[in-house]
């Protein structure tokens, strides 16, 4: 009796939560399969003729594909910049700089906590007047590393700390230079960690809203995060099935990848501070 209750315990707690937390996605999926005419019909809340028309509408009648392309473009470049800057810094902070490095690592991480909502006003002036990048995607490429780098440095620091120093020492004894040891020994084993950083950096970029809505003014240059909640909702005609499709098409694949890398993310995230 006792054992059975113990075994049922996880289900009793976890299943109700899972239903509540995932329900919005279920409702989005259902709505996306309706025709626009059925959406407001309460008699057809659950029973209706499913159609994929909204997905066709989304790809052919809205700026969705364009926004998807914009987001990917910004995401890709920001990931590259972030890796170029954060890989060496994360490694150095984990290995070379000792106690000072620890303080510096925490310092860099804390800048991640300075929110875009605090910086967007001064940055909007800087982007417009000094960089002359108003309404250009390049503005986002330049500004986004300000929050992806601190985050990535922290994660990478955690990953590099988990790689034993002895491995590198062995490479040094075998005649590698310190840099050679880095490239030939350390980076190859850190590839899963680096991939984790790539995915979470990309996801941060897809998520960003405040800078994107402040710096970008024309519909064709929007990113997904701004295009969907503003252009699709404040357009002339609402197409709720189409909007729900727009959310799901991006969210579901991203969530699957995110889930696959979650354990590594946690290890890096907590490893930086708690090891």
């Amino acid at each position: 009796m006792h054992a059975r209750r113990r075994r049922a315990f996880p289900y009793l707690i976890v299943v109700p939560f899972a239903i509540i937390l995932a329900f919005p996605f279920v409702w989005m999926a259902i709505t996306s399969l309706k025709s626009n005419a059925d959406v407001y019909n309460s008699a057809k809340t659950w029973s209706f003729h499913p159609t994929l028309a909204s997905y066709g509408y989304l790809f052919h009648n809205t700026g969705y594909l364009r926004w998807l392309k914009n987001s990917s473009f910004v995401g890709l470049l920001v990931v590259l910049i972030t890796l170029a800057v954060a890989l060496p810094a994360g490694y150095a902070l984990a290995r070379l700089a000792g106690r000072v490095g620890r303080g510096l690592g925490v310092g860099i991480f804390l800048t991640y906590l300075v929110p875009p909502t605090l910086l967007f006003l001064p940055l909007s002036r800087v982007v417009a007047q000094y960089l002359h990048l108003s309404d250009r995607l390049w503005a986002l490429v330049v500004i986004y590393p300000s929050f992806t780098i601190p985050f990535a440095v922290w994660l990478l620091m955690g990953f590099f700390k988990a790689i034993p120093q002895e491995l590198e020492d062995a490479a040094l004894i075998d005649g590698c230079s310190r840099f050679g040891a880095l490239v030939r020994v350390v980076f190859p084993i850190s590839i899963p960690g680096i991939l984790t950083v790539v995915i979470f950096t990309f996801s941060l970029v897809i998520n960003e809203f405040v800078y994107a809505i402040t710096f970008i003014s024309s519909s064709t240059n929007r990113t997904l995060a701004v295009g969907v909640p503003t252009d699709l909702i404040r357009g002339d005609e609402y197409n709720w099935p189409g909007i729900m499709a727009a959310i799901l098409v991006v969210s579901v694949p991203l969530a699957l990848v995110y889930n696959a890398f979650l354990n590594r993310f946690i290890a890096g995230f907590t490893g930086g501070a708690f090891r």
């Binding site: 976890v14 939560f17 899972a18 239903i19 937390l21 995932a22 919005p24 996605f25 409702w27 989005m28 996801s203 897809i206 998520n207 960003e208 809203f209 997904l224 995060a225 701004v226 969907v228 909640p229 699709l232 909702i233 909007i243 729900m244 727009a246 959310i247 991006v250 969210s251 579901v252 991203l254 969530a255 995110y258 889930n259 979650l262």
Partner: peptide, 16 residues
């Protein structure tokens, strides 16, 4: 399922 709300971009899901 529990992770979904965090893994999906909030700018999109809040529209949902």
């Amino acid at each position: 399922l529990i992770l979904l709300p965090w893994a999906a971009p909030i700018a999109l899901t809040v529209t949902g």
